[in-house]
Design a protein around this nucleic acid. Structure first.
Lengths: 187, 187
DNA sequence: GTCGATGTAGACAGATCTGTCTACACTGTA
DNA sequence: TACAGTGTAGACAGATCTGTCTACATCGAC
């Protein structure tokens, strides 16, 4: 759902193959655990090609997060709309994601936890990502744009963050989604 | 508060110096970013000594999480009690932690995000840690031990997880604590 | 028809990773 | 007095890390 099919990656340009391969590996195994040599091998490009497009690994990390942001937001908006576009759409939408076999948590929270001190830009990138997530949540409520609604969406967004990390360690996702529903119902 | 003073580490046995040094570095910089050579150098022990006490780095990681769990739980219980021992104690207690200069999020959530697939034991360790956190939260409510109270504590625990990660990327902690308070008030 | 962008394979440098090994010293205990 | 436990310094192995470099091929645009 949020992961590209490997078969479709093969036909893309070298740059896109690198980006999508990194996207998959960084999300699955983490950023530090994924060496550029592995990305290069799996994307089937030459090392020079890699460094021509991404002068350093950090450049690739930033583009990975940028790409993740666009892809995740697109999925989130579409799924919320498909489930009715009001607040009751939130839990069914998150069920799709948290229950996915490839689910490994939020790429931004994970990257922040892994590289926080070392790459300060990630906190800023994460902040923007979550702001936009909250904007999408505000769109489910009456009077989006009003201060009250914005604050409500921020509170719900915090609960969603709790569900996202909870789903990483919980035995099952349904109990997590139950808690989130009861939290959201009361806001 | 949750960090030991470096001056006090020096007087301890080699094993304790290793553990406390790892505790500090793993939490601050992450586990993969911290090589055993660095731990050995800063703990001022010989390499053989290190590997005699911790046959592999993963053994040290597990002991780090075990130590963190004990230390964090002790702080959490004490601070909740010091702030009155009821539900209103939660936000002031978390303010101490989230506002601390050394704050780098939850060691368990961070380790899980960093090593999730590679070290499956961490999910189980994290689950136990959060269960015990929820038990402490249940202790702030009437009828701790009852099913209703346990469920309530789990919901509040999810909100706390949201606040913990929120404080890692937010501009300021007060806004995060405000949201948490409003969330908890409604449970 | 030359230039710039895109692509290839793979050697190399220098740092850092985990873990092993030799060889020696001190201390408390059985 | 012999042994087990704890401690030291530092070389070494073998893998892996990021990043640079040479040398060559293809293709579209100006």
């Amino acid at each position: 759902m949020l992961m590209p099919e490997p078969s479709k990656i093969e036909k893309l340009s070298a740059r896109e193959r690198i980006l999508l391969t990194a996207y998959r590996l960084f999300y699955k195994d983490g950023i530090r655990a994924t060496g550029v040599d592995r990305v290069i091998a799996e994307a089937k490009v030459a090392k020079v090609t890699f460094y021509r497009h991404f002068p350093s690994k950090n450049d690739l990390v930033f583009e990975f997060l940028e790409y993740r942001h666009r892809r995740w937001m697109a999925w989130f908006s579409e799924s919320l709309a498909a489930h009715g576009g009001n607040l009751t759409a939130l839990v069914p939408t998150l069920r799709e994601w948290l229950g996915d076999a490839d689910y490994r948590g939020c790429a931004f929270i994970n990257s922040l936890g892994e590289l926080g001190e070392a790459v300060p830009e990630i906190a800023e990138i994460t902040r923007r990502h979550k702001q936009e997530m909250n904007r999408s949540i505000a769109g489910l409520l009456p009077n989006p744009g009003s201060k009250k609604t914005t604050e409500k969406a921020e509170i719900i967004g915090m609960a969603v963050d709790g569900a996202i990390v909870g789903a990483q360690y919980a035995e099952g996702v349904e109990e997590v989604l139950d808690r989130l529903r009861r939290l959201v119902d009361r806001v």
